[in-house]
């Protein structure tokens, strides 16, 4: 039993400085990340690799809003990404809209799709996962069924030389920056606290006056928004897409793994997890192309069995004093 404590008068200011310490560490990390991504095109670096790194960071941060903060595992997360790529490509190729408008429009389409899928949030646990996965498959089939003049059918669309890779690259950088800033805001806001309460016990949060379905919808929309933006930037950068790769379940899987490896529910976790694993993935890919997916599967299995809260989450669980530094 804890002995009767006395409240220190400056308790709140101590708390504020603790918050500052947390955020300064976090902002250092994202500044380094953003600066290094910013400099790559200027120095003729590996543009494709850095682009995919930024894309995965954005996706992992995005899925963290719904999976980490509310405990819902959207196995069809790729649906939002896919819709983002398609909306961008159709706007650019078919309607001749500038990419600078097409990508934000893709983000909006992600929000619309999230609202359309919002009723699925009534389902819990495994039902939600299965339905979400099915919805992604429905989207994929729908894209290949639509008239070829619009979606290009099962062959997809090719934007060709119409797009500028470097511009797409910087668009992704801006999207990642906004995603990371949103994440840090959420980590400290009351909305974030409400979401975490819902994740741990939705019924109790409801009984405490939290409007569970509305608050959860905010997280869902944020999640979808960033995935759609990332998809849009991807279409801009690569200039080609087809239904199979745009709605590939592996995209959801990798997103989940990267976010989970770092630690869902923390702000730093998904970033750390993604940067580490994308580097490892790059190295492994070059060495053992055949075994790549096998190792990916092995990493998921080991993570789930031995470190379900990820690297950052486990550190925080076992070393309580680290909680002071980690957001």
């Amino acid at each position: 039993m804890a002995k009767s404590g006395t409240i220190k008068p400056d308790d709140f200011s101590e708390e504020i400085s603790a918050q500052r310490l947390k955020s300064s560490l976090w902002y250092t990390i994202i500044t380094v990340l953003i600066l290094s991504c910013f400099l790559v095109p200027l120095q003729d670096g590996n543009l494709s690799f850095m682009f995919s790194l930024m894309m995965w960071v954005t996706l992992a941060t995005g899925i963290n809003f719904i999976a980490g903060f509310t405990g819902y595992m959207p196995f069809g997360y790729v649906a939002f990404y896919g819709i983002g790529t398609y909306v961008t490509a159709i706007l650019v190729k078919v309607l001749g809209v500038s990419e600078y408008l097409a990508v934000p429009a893709a983000g909006l389409s992600g929000i619309l799709l999230a609202l359309l899928f919002a009723p699925t949030l009534r389902l819990n646990g495994i039902f939600f996962a299965i339905v979400s996965l099915s919805l992604a498959v429905v989207c994929q089939r729908l894209m290949s069924l639509l008239p070829e003049e619009i979606t290009g059918g099962s062959h997809g669309l090719n934007l060709g030389v119409a797009t500028d890779r470097t511009h797409g690259y910087y668009a992704m950088l801006i999207i990642m920056f906004v995603a990371l800033v949103s994440a840090s805001w959420l980590g400290q806001s009351r909305l974030g606290k409400a979401l975490k309460a819902i994740r741990d016990d939705p019924d109790a949060a409801d009984a405490m006056g939290i409007h569970v379905s509305r608050v959860r919808l905010y997280a869902w929309i944020m999640s979808a928004f960033f995935a759609a933006l990332a998809g849009g930037a991807q279409a801009w950068f690569t200039g080609a897409l087809d239904p199979i790769t745009a709605f590939d379940v592996l995209i959801t899987a990798k997103t989940v793994i990267y976010a989970m490896a770092g630690g869902l529910g923390t702000i730093i976790g998904p970033v750390v997890g993604t940067v580490t694993l994308v580097w490892i993935d790059e190295i492994v890919w070059q060495q053992f192309p055949v075994l790549n997916n096998f190792l990916l599967g092995l990493i998921i299995t080991l993570l789930i069995l031995f470190m379900p809260r990820g690297v950052v989450g486990s550190l925080m669980q076992h070393f309580p004093h680290l909680r002071k530094y980690i957001m």
């Binding site: 595992m73 055949v290 096998f294 599967g297 092995l298 809260r309």
Partner: peptide
């Protein structure tokens, strides 16, 4: 923390390994 969702992910990992 959430055995059902974790099982889904775990078996996804197994499926990737089996396909490979």
């Amino acid at each position: 923390d959430e055995p059902e969702t974790s099982s889904f992910l775990l078996m996804f990992g197994v499926s990737l390994m089996m396909i490979a």
